[in-house]
């Protein structure tokens, strides 16, 4: 959906992740970019260069916050100090919506710094949804939760991943950040059809889409964000926007990062698929 309650009724186009190796180029050349996604945690600091750079970016560009450590799926309660820090950043960036992952990553105050898969159970969905609602109430901004890529499944799971995602977002009444690369990676690792996933989620809740590259190993695929987007992921993207409409799209490139132009050029390839879908619909 181009604009919906879950992305703050905005109609952002194609953006890229704001990454350290590109700072100098962006600040000096001021290239045209529809929007940047920032990793919230990188800017949840008390001072210094990161906030100076962010403020200069905010003077020129639209910025959306993407978190990696709210851990909605962790059994622990939301951390109040963490929420205070995010809220301070929300006020700074004026982000129209924010996203974090449908995963867990910490327990008893110890952090794995990973995005770990959830057991797909009703109890877990209920708990996760409650935390998302609580976070939205504190932060006062729409929240989209992102599906993660995974390499393991639990015996206790009671449903598919897309059913779990649906259960959580319906209960929380929140948005979805649909990562089509993650769907593809997980479909290969867990032997399901990625189209089944994309077909069976509530499309009206998709507020943003992620695309990215991954690495194929002999027996599994790893979500490494260090390559251009692969063909099957573009195909899945095209299928997704047929169902969701032209939705704010962001390319993630986090490792072995090439030049700014290369990353931005890769992101803009999404336009081909958007145009194709729109011409079919017309």
């Amino acid at each position: 959906m181009p604009a919906n309650p879950f992305n703050g009724h905005t109609d952002y186009g194609i953006g890229i992740g704001l990454r350290v190796p590109h700072y100098r180029h962006i600040l000096a050349e001021k290239p045209t970019v529809d929007w940047f996604e920032i990793i919230s945690e990188n800017f949840m600091v008390d001072g210094g260069r990161p906030l100076e750079v962010l403020d200069r970016i905010l003077e020129q560009y639209r910025v959306v916050q993407h978190g990696v450590a709210m851990y909605f799926g962790s059994a622990d309660k939301l951390d109040c100090e963490h929420m205070r820090r995010i809220k301070r950043l929300v006020k700074r960036t004026n982000t129209p919506w924010l996203s974090d992952h449908l995963c867990w990553g910490s327990v008893d105050g110890r952090f794995t710094h990973d995005l770990l898969p959830m057991p797909y159970t009703f109890a877990a969905a209920k708990h996760t949804a409650q935390k998302i609602r609580a976070a939205r109430d504190i932060l006062e901004v729409p929240i989209c939760v992102e599906n993660v890529s995974s390499y393991a499944e639990y015996h206790v799971s009671e449903m598919t991943e897309w059913e779990f995602l649906t259960e959580v977002v319906e209960r929380a009444d929140c948005g979805i950040l649909l990562d089509v690369n993650n769907i593809f990676v997980s479909s290969q690792n867990h032997n399901f059809d990625p189209l089944d996933y994309v077909n069976h989620i509530p499309h009206h809740r998709v507020g943003q889409i992620h695309i990215a590259g991954h690495s194929k190993f002999e027996r599994y695929i790893l979500d490494t964000h260090d390559h251009p987007v692969l063909d099957p992921v573009w195909k899945l993207y095209e299928h997704a926007i047929r169902l969701t409409g032209n939705t704010a799209t962001l390319l993630e490139w986090d490792d072995r990062i090439p030049t700014f132009d290369e990353v931005h050029g890769e992101a803009l390839k999404a336009n081909e698929f958007i145009e194709r879908v729109e011409s079919c619909a017309a």
Binding site: S74, A75, D76, W104, S106, V107, D108, R110, T112, L116, P119, T121, A123, A124, H127, Y154, V156, E158
Partner: peptide, 16 residues
Amino acid sequence: MESVRELKELQRLMAS
């Protein structure tokens, strides 16, 4: 899995 307590136990086990 019926409860948050069981979710926590699973997460503790995996984290360990």
